[in-house]
Computed example of a mutant assay.
Amino acid sequence: MLCIKNAKINTVTNGIIQGDILIENGKIKEIGKDIVVPLDVKVVDAKENYVFPGFIDPHTHVGMWEDGMGHEGADGNEETDPITPHLSAVDGINAMDRNFKEAYEGGITTVASGPGSANVIGGQFIALKTYGDRIDDMVLKTIGMKIAFGENPKSAYGKEDKTPQTRMATAALLRETLKRAQFYLEDMIDYEEDEDCDRPEYDNKLEALIPVLKKEIPLKAHAHRADDIFTAIRIAKEFDLDLTIDHCTEGHLITKHLSKENYPVLVGPSLSERCKIELRNLTFETPGILSNEGLNVSLMTDHPVVPIQYLPLCASLAVKAGMDKNKAIEAITINPAKVLGLDDRIGSIEVGKDADIVIWNGHPLDIQSNVACTIINGEVVYSA
């Protein structure tokens, strides 16, 4: 057992509580004032400092592009085939990438990491805790199927005189693959329900798309420009699929449309240069504008584009540009937890949830604040 005493607890979902947190078997057991604990329980004195749930980054490539490694550590894009749904981040992440340590030292306890955006369908994103030395022990679940629109697939394959060279071809390839997956699933259902039907020939690409068709995971769409966002929405609606809009750089230009469609939006990386045409409208005002419209907004670093430990700084800059302070905290806690389908475990300080808790020596959106202690699954993994 572990007990955090004398804390200013920002629960995120139930306001601020001055008191203690009791942790048992990696879970939050009790929250309240002057909790009485046995003498053998380890006590962490928060010294009246801020206590927040561990922050969550819902779109990174941590461990896929390892820090300081160059080509040898680059395992995020399989640029030999624009359609690779059968690839899983769990087989490409190096848990010993030092950026995981920098993440939890910066208060980030859960990330989603996965393939890059060179391919029309890049593969499977996973959610994982940031502490550990073996990916099998860190992974929580597969949370989405990465797809990409816009400049990246065009530039990756167009230069090789391969498809896709246009946005039309990107959409066509995605539609063709989803339709083939639908037929494959229908044949599998017929085989399982009718003993006279032959089993369809195994196809690992189409097999990987079955959870998408069953709405067990969403399409995780890389889309910066407004027209690419609309294409992602159009295809998701055509095939009746769940969708998250990742980057959403021009979301502030189409706010009313996004509000009507009401898909989750993951905004970022905003702390970066406008290095290509589709980023020309990049601004930190986007998350605040979308949040004020009632959308479920999460913030993302797209690590290594923005180093993972600067997720709280991105939230702070969003507040500076007009986002409500509480909404900015939600955008790095409970909102991404909902996007990842893990809000029953993480994203807020509530009884029964994972004990992923961070003690700060000041408010985390104050650039001068530092992490004093990080707890993941009830274990103190970092102490300043």
Rank of each mutant, 00 (worst) to 15 (best):
P336C: 07
D366K: 03
K5M: 09
Q18P: 00
H303V: 09
M188W: 10
G107K: 04
E193I: 06
G341W: 05
K162L: 15
E66L: 13
D34V: 05
L39P: 00
K42M: 11
T231N: 13
L311E: 10
M323Q: 14
R180A: 14
Q182Y: 10
V306D: 08
F125L: 12
D81H: 04
E195Q: 12
T283E: 12
L213H: 05
V36R: 04
Y184F: 15
I135P: 10
D324K: 06
G144K: 00
I346C: 07
T283F: 10
F125E: 10
S88Y: 08
A318K: 02
N6L: 05
I217H: 03
P269K: 06
V371D: 01
L174H: 11
Y50K: 02
K5S: 12
E151S: 07
D194T: 12
I83H: 10
I346H: 02
H222D: 11
N6K: 11
T374K: 03
D354F: 07
S117T: 09
D242Q: 11
K220P: 00
D196T: 14
L39M: 04
G68I: 08
I329K: 07
A321D: 14
I289T: 15
R199H: 11
A232Q: 11
A127N: 06
Y131H: 15
E48I: 00
D190C: 03
G132C: 11
L173T: 02
P264A: 02
D75G: 08
I375F: 07
N10T: 04
L266A: 02
I308G: 02
R280T: 08
S291I: 08
E285M: 07
H59A: 04
G107W: 05
V36S: 10
V371Q: 03
D302A: 11
K327W: 07
K101G: 00
K8M: 07
C373K: 10
I147F: 04
T301S: 14
L173Y: 14
N94Q: 04
V351E: 14
D227Y: 00
E186S: 14
F183S: 13
S88D: 10
L342A: 08
S270Q: 13
L140A: 02
D302Q: 11
I245E: 05
V305C: 13
P153M: 09
I28N: 02
S291Y: 15
V12H: 04
G378E: 09
V319E: 05
L185E: 15
D228W: 00
M188I: 06
G92L: 08
G294F: 08
A46E: 08
